[in-house]
Design a protein around this nucleic acid. Structure first.
Lengths: 134, 134
DNA sequence: TAATTGGTTAGCCATGAAGCTAACTATAAG
DNA sequence: CTTATAGTTAGCTTCATGGCTAACCAATTA
């Protein structure tokens, strides 16, 4: 089995849960023991531990046990990896916006050019589009 | 009963699925019909439509039907909202790193000062905070 | 040694997510 | 009018997730 989820899959899935996001946020400021982390949540410890485990599995958190205390710390690389995905998409999206803007500018120019000689306002090609039976 | 998932919950959950991430990536470059979007995937249409619906529910995608074709486009605001979360965390994390770095610098200075008896090396007030028995 | 603390293991349950097929609707195209 | 296209609805299975309790170590502390 071992469904071979990608790191991104796992990180996003981990962050989709508010409890886990809260844990990550908490660990951004400081490392902490499981008990400290769990304290704000009204949840049985075993349930809480599952969240910790999810965060460890996807590489967002590492922990180490010393005596009977397990201390957790954030691994920011995993976070950065996910952030990169967004930035990549945004780059693509913005490039597209730029293209669109350029296109609009071109249209504007053409329109201006078309307006000058006389009114050629008959070629609008508006499709009737959707009828909605009320 | 309408579990009141936050937008972030939903967006991250949506992006945790590779199919949906692929759809979003595709829509970053261009809008497309459901059929066009579905084509690269070996998946029954109804299954695929569920993914579209998830993306619409969390606000990442909007669609409109004209004739029998439903055209989907990306709503980048939702994407940006998720990206912001990362940047916020990163800011906190980096502030912490800075503090740590400052602390290390201070330590270095003190060490250097301690080596040379000439400099004043007594006013440091370092809080022990967390002890780590090593 | 006995009790407490901090976490762990095991196992149960309810819900929801992700996939499928089959059958249906509505618009285009022939 | 008939057929093909593009989605849609309904209903089913399977498996993962998130929660619980109960019982169990293993270090501290008394």
């Amino acid at each position: 089995m071992a469904n071979q989820l990608s790191q991104l899959d796992q990180v996003f899935a981990a962050l989709a849960d508010p409890t886990r996001r809260a844990i990550v946020m908490r660990l951004c400021t400081d490392e902490a023991s499981v008990g400290e982390l769990a304290e704000p949540f009204e949840m049985a410890l075993p349930s809480f531990m599952k969240h910790i485990h999810v965060l460890e599995t996807c590489g967002l958190v590492q922990s180490e046990k010393e005596g009977r205390v397990r201390t957790c710390r954030l691994i920011p690389e995993a976070l950065v990896g996910a952030e990169d995905w967004f930035q990549h998409q945004r780059a693509i999206w913005e490039a597209r916006l730029d293209r669109f803007e350029a296109y609009v500018m071109k249209l504007k120019k053409e329109r201006a050019a078309a307006k000058r000689p006389s009114k050629t306002a008959g070629k609008t090609t508006i499709k009737p589009s959707k009828r909605k039976g009320a």
